Simulated assay, not measured.
Amino acid sequence: MLMIVMVSSCSSGSNRLSVDEGKRLADKTRRPVAQTYWRLYKGIGTSVSQGGGDGRFVDCEDAKADSMVYTTSNLLTSRKKEKESGERLAETAAGKLASIGWSLEPSHGVHRSATKNGVTVELRPTEINDWSIILQAQSGCVNLGAAADVLKDAYSSQSDLYHDSRAATSRVPTKFPDPDSSG
């Protein structure tokens, strides 16, 4: 009886992705979100002030074991001398995004969203002030196996940096943060 439990325990653990397999899947998950981020960034252009964005893996909202989403975000602020309301800024940003094929549907106030090819794009309010909004692109929830714990640790204090870029092709992260570095 004890032997059966051990065998059963070993066989059920073999279905979990290894750290390397999970990281490969994480990279495949991150790439379309990062590419979408840069299309959005360039689509909005200089109509609003954009700082650098960041990206990270976080637990899925429904907290499935070993499952995470990759999310990028960027703070958008009006360039006008007299600050626009968040709602007006969201309308301006949504108009720019619609011109590049992202028609974000409003749900209430500032919040607007759309999903294409497994990537969800959102405009949402921020708690910083009432004249800035967050532009976010996010993957779907994906099971990363043993890599989930490693990535959670790595992204707990660091993120993928999306520096301001006017380049024709913008960089997509190719490495993960090192949790042991003092970045």
Rank of each mutant, 00 (worst) to 15 (best):
G53L: 06
L161F: 04
S8M: 15
V119N: 06
P106F: 01
V110M: 01
E61T: 03
D20T: 14
S139A: 06
W102S: 09
W131K: 09
V172D: 10
N143P: 00
Y37D: 06
H111V: 12
T92I: 12
L2V: 10
W38Y: 14
S182Q: 13
G118M: 03
G53I: 04
N15S: 12
L17N: 03
K64T: 14
H108A: 15
K116F: 12
T72W: 01
P179Y: 05
L75V: 11
K64Y: 11
G22V: 03
Q50L: 04
A168P: 07
V33I: 12
A147N: 05
G101D: 12
L104A: 08
G118Y: 11
M68N: 06
H163Q: 06
N15C: 08
E21C: 02
E84T: 12
G118I: 11
V19P: 00
G109R: 04
P177Q: 01
V58P: 00
F57W: 03
G95D: 12
T36P: 04
L97P: 03
F57H: 00
Y37G: 08
T46R: 13
G43P: 03
S85P: 10
G101H: 03
A146L: 14
T71Q: 13
S8Y: 13
T36K: 08
H108P: 00
T120H: 07
M68R: 03
K175M: 01
S103I: 02
M3E: 13
G45M: 05
L151A: 03
Q136L: 12
P177I: 00
L97E: 12
E87L: 10
W102E: 01
L76C: 15
E82M: 06
S139H: 08
C60F: 00
N143Q: 10
A148D: 05
E91S: 10
M68T: 02
S85D: 14
S11R: 12
F57E: 04
T115F: 11
D59P: 05
T46I: 05
R16Y: 08
R16D: 11
